[in-house]
Simulated scan of single mutants.
Amino acid sequence: MTLDRFIQLWTHRYHKSCHIFKAYFLGYSAAFHFLWRKLFFKKGKDLIGIVRTEHFGDIVAVEPISRYVRSLYPDAHIVWFVKPVFRELVANNPSVNEVFPEFCISERKALLSLGVFDKIFELQFRNNNYCPKCQVFKENPIAQQRNINVYNYFNYGNLLEVFAQSGDLIAPNAVFPADDQPKLYLTDDHRKKVEKLALTKPYLVLHCQSNYILKDWPADKWNQLVAWMAEKYDYQMVEVGLKSNLTVATDKYQNLCGQLSILETAEVIRNAAFFIGLDSGPSHLANAVGTYGMILMGSLNDFPTYNPYSGGYGRQDNAVFIRQEGEVCANLSFDFVQNKIEAVLDHSAHGV
């Protein structure tokens, strides 16, 4: 072994060990925090945890579970476990008493191993319950028992139904028994931030790039779509997301990528006439705020015609899925997508 390789190896081990030590320290500290809280609970009051730490579209999709758990345990102290970057999605949820910003899975394992919580609803399965620094998975016994995993989860329904089953809140392959329309809890701060943008109305919101290449539609086709809509319609077009890969030359287009928080993005979408995008986080925001959606979707791995949404998008009362069975999103032709969007914009009562 060379000296450089030796140093790299032990540097990695040092950082990993420090990370694990911090995780367990935080986990045991959190256990003390919750034990202290329980000392002041009224007799019979439960401490309940809901675990859905990522991704942000999934967190939005399972929001109805917070209301359902609250209906089952009206007097409980409900804690939502989430990654800090997504804390804003649950911070203002009136069904949640406390948000636990999770450092990593090892922290949660340490905390839950002490039996402080009276009930835990894990809305995750092994494949999306992993810390790359600790290199640790957190198993969900319910998901294991029901054989729910990353390779088959859409065989169990939409995201809300899948994660409700993973948390043992509903029976296998059951329909969610309560209001399944996701909600967001926007504040005046979000509204004021978007008002300052002074976006020209009416406008369409575009989301053109997901976090998974198999869900994407090529940038050159998006460029062509924007140019066509700019020529034919009076809508402004506003792109949201982390970053843009478009090269657009029209004053009807505005790039807001990377400039907004998640809930500020939701407020932009809420004020839009339409949302046109992919199966990704912003489409779940659009579903939650009630903006009519045109969603470009294709087959995904072993799921030729999956449906991730509940509520208005899930029933396609408030959305149209632009898809062809067996084709990945990238293979959707421009003409096919154009015709689907044209049908909505020309004939919808919301059109200009």
Rank of each mutant, 00 (worst) to 15 (best):
I59Q: 00
V60Y: 01
V60K: 02
A61C: 09
V62R: 00
V62D: 04
E63C: 10
E63G: 06
E63A: 12
P64R: 07
S66H: 15
R67H: 14
Y68L: 13
L72T: 04
L72H: 04
Y73F: 14
Y73V: 10
Y73D: 05
Y73A: 12
P74T: 07
P74A: 09
P74D: 09
A76F: 10
H77V: 09
H77N: 10
V79S: 04
W80D: 06
F81H: 07
P84F: 04
R87V: 04
L89R: 00
V90K: 00
N92Q: 14
N92G: 02
N93T: 13
S95A: 15
N97R: 04
N97C: 11
E98Y: 02
V99H: 00
V99G: 01
V99Y: 03
P101N: 05
E102N: 06
C104W: 01
S106I: 00
R108H: 03
R108M: 15
R108A: 11
R108E: 11
R108Q: 13
K109N: 13
A110Y: 00
L111I: 01
G115L: 06
G115M: 08
V116S: 03
D118N: 15
K119T: 12
I120P: 08
L123Q: 05
L123M: 15
L123H: 08
L123G: 09
N128S: 11
N128I: 13
C131F: 01
C131A: 06
C134F: 00
Q135K: 14
K138A: 14
E139M: 08
E139K: 10
E139F: 06
N140R: 03
N140L: 08
N140Y: 01
N140G: 04
P141S: 09
Q144N: 13
R146E: 08
R146H: 07
I148V: 09
V150H: 06
N152M: 07
